[in-house]
C-alpha cells in the first residue's frame, strides 16, 4: 500500500495519549499500520494512511481514539 496513497491532511483521527493504557489493540486492527507502540503507549506514525474506518475507535478499551468522518 505504500505506493498508493490518498489525500494528505484530511483524516479526522484524534488520539489522546494520556488515556492510552498500552493494550496495543489499535496496532492490531488498523489495516494501514497508522499506530505503533512506543514506550508502552500507542503513537500515530502515519496519519495520512488513515482511512477513517473506525476499527481502532471501536476496539480501544478506554475510548482514547476518535474519528469523525462526515457523511462521506
Amino acid at each position: 500500500m505504500k505506493n498508493i496513497r490518498y489525500l494528505e491532511d484530511v483524516s479526522t483521527l484524534a488520539f489522546n495519549k494520556d488515556k492510552c493504557v498500552g493494550c496495543g489493540l489499535c496496532t492490531v486492527v488498523c489495516p494501514h499500520q497508522v499506530f505503533e507502540m512506543n514506550d508502552g503507549k500507542a503513537v500515530i506514525v502515519d496519519l495520512d494512511g488513515c482511512m477513517e474506518c473506525g476499527a481502532c475507535v471501536n476496539n480501544c478499551p478506554v475510548n482514547a481514539i476518535e474519528v469523525n468522518p462526515g457523511v462521506g
Binding site: L7, T12, P69
Partner: peptide
C-alpha cells in the same frame, strides 16, 4: 478501494 478516507472523498 480499501484506502480512501470519507473525509478525503468529500473534499475531492
Amino acid at each position: 478501494t480499501p484506502f480512501t478516507s470519507p473525509s478525503g472523498v468529500e473534499r475531492e
